[in-house]
Design a protein around this nucleic acid. Structure first.
Length: 312
DNA sequence: GAGTCGTGGAA
DNA sequence: TTTCCAAGACT
């Protein structure tokens, strides 16, 4: 771990920018904490490279680190470069995705690899706009890859960072359901001017949210900025207002899709309709789920009522 | 902008 | 047991 970058001594202390706090004590404390507490994750090691970072970001979308780890290792061993994945069938990506969930991510990662092979000479693009143009890469992932893989200066606003900001700065328990313009502005304001420091800050603030400033059972006693946390100083008021979520799962199309795709992942030859029919009793919903998978490109229908993971 | 899209561990 | 939620993207 490198030492935290000190606030640049040449920045005039009497001219605080209104678009950037440059460096507040906040940054130093969080980055120093990160130096001592960062997890040793494979995609953070130098040998991971931009492709490793990108693969990890796809897998980590809405999925816990512990579940990603084994799949990540197998993925990189099998497809060490984007072009390796691009040469394989998209269905193989879906199969290797296993039970990570949201299998469209596997399809998009394959699509991104194809685009990288075709348009970017096989190298993960360094440009933020080019990253954003790849399938499966949105506002967060583009900033994350540019920052973590290439050390660039971008506001990286994931659920962890949003929660840290909500508490430490805004003084509320949870951020809004959807990212707001105010949050983006705050993220830009807090982003250190120095590129290397900004990248370090992005990783550090995320890690703080993941390990200390967690959604439940937060550990303020281990928090490097507890003394300045607006939420804690306000007495940690609980979230008021409507419930933040409400995603039921049992009985939904998502569950049926999951069961259907599980059958196809395990099979290494086309599967007859009858085998798929066994996973769900209700024919209308079952057909709707299967149609949805086909429409998404996750399943390829064959003549004679056979199905398989997509070859193209 | 609200809905949709998987999965499984922990509280 | 039920509920929550874990580095979002896309429509």
């Amino acid at each position: 771990m490198t030492a935290p970058t000190k606030p640049s001594p040449d920045s005039p202390a009497d001219a605080p920018s209104d678009t950037s706090l440059g460096e507040s004590p906040l940054h130093g404390a969080v980055i120093e904490w990160f130096d001592d507490n960062a997890r040793d994750l494979p995609w953070r090691r130098p040998e991971a490279g931009p492709w490793g970072v990108m693969v990890s970001e796809f897998m980590l979308q809405q999925t816990p680190v512990n579940r990603v780890l084994p799949v990540y290792e197998q993925w990189l061993a099998r497809w060490p470069r984007p072009a390796d994945l691009a040469k394989d069938a998209p269905g193989e990506a879906v199969r290797a995705w296993g039970r990570l969930g949201y299998p469209r991510r596997a399809l998009r990662l394959h699509g991104a690899a194809v685009a990288i092979a075709e348009r970017h000479g096989g190298d993960v693009p360094t440009d933020h706009a080019q990253l954003l143009a790849l399938p499966g890469i949105g506002e967060y992932t583009a900033a994350a890859v540019a920052s973590f893989a290439y050390g660039q200066r971008h506001p990286v606003l994931d659920t962890n960072v949003r929660r840290v900001f909500a508490r430490a700065v805004t003084g509320v328990q949870y951020p809004p359901n959807a990212t707001t313009a105010a949050e983006r502005k705050l993220a830009r304001t807090l982003l250190p001017d120095d590129e290397r420091t900004a990248a370090r800050w992005a990783a550090a603030s995320m890690e703080l949210g993941a390990l200390v400033c967690t959604a439940k059972n937060e550990s303020c006693h281990r928090c490097p900025i507890a003394a300045q946390c607006a939420w804690r100083l306000a007495g940690k008021p609980e979230h008021d207002g409507p419930p933040r979520r409400g995603q039921t799962y049992a009985g939904t199309d998502r569950q049926v899709r999951g069961k259907l795709l599980a059958v196809l992942r395990e099979a290494h030859s086309p599967v007859p309709q009858a085998a798929l029919d066994r996973v769900w009793h209700e024919p209308v919903q079952r057909a709707r789920a299967l149609d949805g998978l086909v429409a998404d490109g996750l399943v390829e229908p064959l003549p004679g009522g056979m199905y398989r993971l997509p070859l193209t």
